[in-house]
Design a protein around this nucleic acid. Structure first.
Lengths: 247, 247
DNA sequence: CGCCTATTTGATCTGATTCAAACAATGTGG
DNA sequence: CCACATTGTTTGAATCAGATCAAATAGGCG
């Protein structure tokens, strides 16, 4: 059942090493983490609000979203996740999920039991710190999104989101020359930024007209990085990039 | 210089014990934490975006805000803090502050050096877990605010904020009969909820007209708790209350 | 090919902003 | 204790960014 391959855990190791390199021993412990791997299709729930998970999910590849549903069907997406992310690491310390996670595109997921993660953080304080730090960076992203939703124009919000996705995917080795592949529909972007689908469509057309991006379907290329950063007031400080972001 | 009194740390201990009681030993270690106490006036910065703090701040009493300033003076407030909160605990793992903290009302602040906190979490895993958990609850509050700013009406947003403040202050022993003292101006509320001051004023008048609250200056009494919760779609799950919230 | 989902366009509406000014409360110094 | 300054609240009118409703077009994909 517990089918894992060493390569599956490499994205996580890379992530944790962003701040401080791990020792050979620490890396080995991570590689030996028992993990159950599952492939799931697009739009599948990973965990739902109210669940009490006994394991954490590591996104091995694909794309996932964190969201809450309101009574009347409105939805707020709170973050997007890519390979190497552990979007529900928080379940290690918060028993009940206060939101849901779902795949956006077909994805490969690794599940690691809480008991193994608890042992890991008890015995390896530096890994524990790196994981804690990772949850703090998540929180920093939430804060930055709050600023956008609360105080920035739709134009700036979309520009900012594109900057963030390109930056994060570059670090994960998923971008080349400011070009990325994102499975996001305009409806998803609307729900992430507190806008309507129609308005997102119109603003994207404006970004295209302003020659900031070429964006067709899943293919997105930033053609004017400086211009896009300016439009989105994007300052990557909140991503707290370590070595990886220094390049 | 290091003037501390044992009573100063009690709010923090109460907070950490929300999930699991601490041992006598653990409590003693916390009480012995070297802390420098300072009284500051209203509207004073505690730390600024870009700072690299070497200590964490524990709010002993008063009221504080977490915020970011944008280029043209717009401001987004990301959380409010009360006694027992450690709003910059994240600085233990994130070197550079990505936002600022300031007092809202005159406050008593305790400062604890990172080195002491690091020793604490190395030697007391259960305290470490409780502190980590605390930062995760902060993040949960950010997420809930995102939902409000992104998808709820101004009326619901303000109702929700009042519900949250009353709930949190009740747990901290700062409320009686759904009555609290908050030093928030309508301008601060606007900057927290992504609204304009004028609109906040009009909506508060509507809440009063609907007999949900009596709110005059710093004195706020919820006169219809169920009605206010309904109006704000308030479900306290995201606060992840433990024993304290069970009452 | 045909179905389903996404994108695009147009027209209309509205929640919330902005600007401007009056008013109330609080605090300060003489 | 009052005059004055400062900050916060309230009101009104005009405007706008973005939502909503409705329908047409365009992609993907089995």
């Amino acid at each position: 059942m517990s089918s894992e391959t060493s390569s599956d855990l490499l994205p996580l190791i890379r992530r944790l090493e962003d701040v401080a390199p791990l020792t050979a021993d620490e890396k080995q412990v991570l590689l030996n983490l028992p993990m159950y791997v599952r492939e799931v299709g697009a739009g599948q729930d990973i965990i739902r609000e109210g669940d009490r998970p006994s394991q954490c999910c590591l996104l091995l590849n694909g794309f996932a979203q964190r969201f809450k549903l309101l009574g009347d069907g409105r939805r707020q997406i709170m973050s997007f996740h890519i390979a190497g992310d552990m979007p529900d690491l928080l379940s290690l310390h918060l028993k009940v999920m206060d939101h849901s996670l779902a795949t956006v595109s077909p994805s490969r997921l690794g599940f690691i039991a809480h008991q193994h993660l608890r042992r890991l953080i008890q015995q390896h304080p530096r890994i524990s710190d790196a994981l804690w730090r990772d949850t703090l960076v998540d929180a920093a992203v939430f804060r930055e999104w709050m600023v956008g939703i609360g105080r920035r124009s739709a134009y700036a919000r979309i520009a900012h989101l594109v900057c963030e996705l390109v930056t994060r995917m570059e670090i994960a080795g998923l971008a080349q020359d400011k070009s990325i592949n994102i499975p996001l529909t305009q409806g998803l972007i609307a729900d992430a930024l507190g806008l309507s689908t129609v308005h997102v469509n119109r603003i994207i057309q404006a970004l295209r007209a302003d020659k900031l991006v070429v964006w067709r379907g899943k293919g997105l290329t930033v053609t004017d990085w400086e211009g896009l950063k300016r439009a989105g007031e994007f300052d990557p400080g909140y991503l707290h990039l370590g070595y990886a972001g220094a390049a």
